[in-house]
Amino acid sequence: MLFTALQLAAFLVLPPLLLGVIGRVKSRVAGREGPPLLQPWRDLLRLAGKGAVYSRTTTWVFRAGPVVGLAAILAAGLLMPLGAPSATVAFAGDFALLASLLGLARFVTVVAALDTGSSFEGMGAAREVTFSALAEPALFLGLVSLARSTGGLDLTHLLGDGLAVAWRSDASSLLLVALSIFVVALAENARIPVDDPATHLELTMIHEVMVLDHSGPDLALIQYGAALKLYLFGALVVKLALGARLADPAAAFAAFLAGQLAFAAAIGLVEATMARLRLVRVPQLLIGASVLSGFALVLLLRT
């Protein structure tokens, strides 16, 4: 119970810090000092305190987008084990609800973008739905492989103690799955090499260009939601990579948080060392991720 409350509290507070870590790592690799770790939080609070300007083209759909999007991601947080021994709400098939809630968040963001009637935002929305639709099978192939390997039907068991045994017997498959899910995490969270969150050219953006017209508290909701989503995917990767069984829940929680930091650092390193892919190559990357986890599944099914 204590740890359930603790993981939810951490879920609400820590995600913007991950963005801070990514920024710091990127800057350090480039030889700069970088912004303070708390900068994302400060940005959020500043945005929340501002007023908002709305396009005359927009309707209630545009105003509802950020609210429903963040609520969906928050609800998804209930389903993911975030350091405690179990997710806050766990049941067979919860991964499907998690994926659909993230899909809902994406759907309302896309629809809100289309509400502005801007060709740039339409472009971003088209890219977003294209890439996320292609990322979906990669994620589920990974989950199916995990189910085959651990015998679990909910996220708590798919990413739980069974993994410790599975890493011993099916290490190579799990490695492929982890790699594939990491790629999915990069794509879903609009990071390099799929999307460059720091770019200033609208033509090359994906996620950022969709939210061009949001301002003030709406933008704060969107950016906070993006940080939470990164934390959720981080949890997926960390729990999968950690794999070890720690008897003491406090130690497990600490290991989880350390893992999240490492995840953020890894993303920072990827961003610092890689260039953004050309947009036509992104589907290839995602299909490649599907192929990797599909391959893992084939290896698992053979034995």
Binding site: Q284, I287, V291, F295, R302
Partner: peptide
């Protein structure tokens, strides 16, 4: 294309894994 050839390659490998037994 690159993506289709990758998928073809993967299919070939899957077939190989399946029928090498």
């Amino acid at each position: 294309g690159f993506a289709p050839s990758m998928v073809l390659g993967a299919l070939g490998i899957v077939v190989a894994v399946w029928y090498a037994g």
